[in-house]
Design a protein around this nucleic acid. Structure first.
Lengths: 357, 357
DNA sequence: CTGAAAGCGCTAACAT
DNA sequence: ATGTTAGCGCTTTCAG
């Protein structure tokens, strides 16, 4: 592979000049510029990114920490992150922590600041102390999906109002006439979904509805399935189930099917996130859409800014921790929610009565 | 961040020695070794990967080219790749081509050999010429999921016998008694699924069954849905549908549902791959499982070997192109396939008759 | 067993 | 407008 100096020699200039024309820095005469470009072309020169990284003191990569890329939310998010990262010439290294804080730490220790100039963190179950450490070492970190805009974490982040998401789900169910509902709260270990559930409960409480059973579950279709079955067996009168994530919501639909319940007529189901699968399920899942792509963009932008401003390096301690807030989640009504059957009958009767009048 | 020399100074030795103890190279006295280790510990030294990459002439990353990480197969594969890569100290940079050869080329041009010492390629719709170019420039490339073990491509690869996968699917349907089947062939553009379909057709042909309608589709649930509807509308007598991938197969199930057909009683559906969703669908999808994790492991191993042997750099042209073959795909019977209804009735009648005798 | 020295390919002040 | 000169942090012969 040709190097800068070879190109320089070929063009009859010095490496510095070549570097300048390539990076649009400094002033370079038009003729030499052309000569250099030609040399680059004929030699097929490509800058050596590792060398450049060393010289610049910054590698053109971002580390994206995820718990497991196999969870369908992450790929969608990762794709958005990659798109955003490319616009600033960054590559993304994908780091699966598998929910293991030690794996996460190992990643941070190895690449933060040495191969990546920034770290993006999703709910990867990382140790916050480790994140602070890497930040203290000079590598900016941003949390990509903070759940509580009202309670900033100690780290730069992009917050999404997940409490509102839960509330919207609850309100929707309430408006349809549901009064007896179940809730499936995912990610028990990390407790990260608590906020969503709070929002849901708030909605019910505001409406004076107290009937609400909860069940924790792992954040998968299967987890939701199991939780929903338990919920439905404990209280067969439930007319609706809210899940803090789409995957468990999908599982709840399966559980309903297995119990001979028809969704949405016998049981309404609503989730949160709006992953692609939500659109593709049968019936299509009503869910509260979270601005994933937007959040990814905001996160990358924020990280980029922190990098430029060398956040963390300078006056540590006194600076305020930036937080960006994404646009609000919004309800997407599809086919998995409806007026509960009992109500519908009542409404039908009412209608008939009216007709008779 | 502390550097090697700082550690050296702190330990009263030279950088070379520190490097040696850290990399278990060269002979170092036990006492100095300990001293160095202590210094590393107290200073919190972490090797600068970019610097090391430059000095060693090789960056510790692998580029994984995928068409779109949002397609659920890729995350599963990517996860396996990352796991395998880590065992040799490699990080993985995820490169979404979005099916665009130009994007793919841009990635290759930028990072191959400059930030990544190897490239892993899935069906990312890359230009083979570009791959050959990067190989010629000295960066090993391996194709991760070559579909025809009998026809090696010109590049190192891991092959999976996808013809057999199609055949297994066909045979399964045949054995259940299906005679009138439809096929959904995905990824028309790249033609990559043709082999799977061939296998399917071979099976039918061998059984003397010619009834088989084909339809091409994009490789998504929606694509499968559309194709299945078209198939079923064109020939309502179809008792089974084979799809060259799980996603379209899932879509076919939805189409059946919308047409009032019960899977598997009215229509059997079988796919290929066995992505996680196949286990989670309702009914669970019968499919031909492909050894994804194994293939990922083989691909990383192969790539690693090529890197060690500096394949491509030395005696170009005369070498033979290595190919690894994964274990065979195998049928996983779940709930989406069954004996066709007509047959079942016949069998029932036969049974009754026998009983009467 | 350890140190000295050169250099990986590039960038960045500073000179000219 | 271009050239000079130092490194970036690490590895790696080759001496001692």
């Amino acid at each position: 592979m040709p190097t800068l100096s070879e190109v320089a020699r070929h063009a009859g200039v010095t490496p510095a000049t070549v570097s300048n024309v390539l990076r649009h820095r400094g002033r370079v005469g038009e003729t030499t510029r052309q000569r250099v470009l030609d040399a680059v072309e004929t030699l097929g020169y490509r800058p050596h990114l590792a060398a450049r990284a060393l010289a610049e003191g910054r590698a053109p990569t971002l580390a994206l920490m995820v718990s497991s890329i196999a969870n369908p939310f992450y790929p969608e998010f990762a794709l958005a992150v990659e798109r955003a990262a490319r616009t600033s010439g960054h590559f993304v290294i994908i780091c699966n922590t598998n929910e293991d804080p030690l794996t996460g730490r190992a990643y941070l220790d190895q690449i933060a600041g040495t191969l990546s100039e920034g770290v993006l963190v999703t709910n990867a179950n990382l140790d916050f102390a480790d994140l602070h450490t890497t930040e203290a070492r000079g590598t900016p970190v941003v949390l990509c999906m903070w759940e509580r805009p009202s309670e900033p974490p100690g780290l730069p982040c992009v917050a999404v109002d997940f409490r509102l998401a839960g509330e919207l789900a609850g309100t929707h169910l309430l408006e349809l006439g549901h009064r007896r509902m179940g809730a499936i709260v995912g990610s028990k270990a990390s407790g990260i979904h608590a906020t969503r559930y709070e929002g849901f409960v708030d909605a019910l409480r505001a409406a004076g509805v107290a009937k609400n059973r909860v069940r924790h579950a792992v954040d998968t279709i299967r987890g939701g399935y199991l939780a929903a079955r338990a919920l439905l067996e404990a209280d067969p009168q439930l007319t609706a189930i809210f899940a803090t994530n789409d995957l468990p919501a999908l599982g709840a639909m399966h559980a309903a099917a297995d119990l001979g319940l028809c969704v949405p007529d016998d049981l309404s189901v609503v989730g949160i996130t709006d992953i692609e699968l939500a659109r593709e399920s049968r019936p299509a899942l009503t869910t509260v859409a979270v601005p994933t792509v937007e959040a990814a963009g905001l996160a990358v932008d924020l990280l980029r800014e922190l990098i430029e401003s060398s956040y963390g390096q300078a006056g540590r301690g006194t600076k305020h921790v930036p937080m960006r807030i994404s646009s609000a989640p919004r309800l997407v009504v599809r086919a998995s929610t409806a007026v509960p059957r009992a109500r519908r009958k009542a409404a039908a009767n009412a209608g008939r009565t009216e007709n008779l009048e």
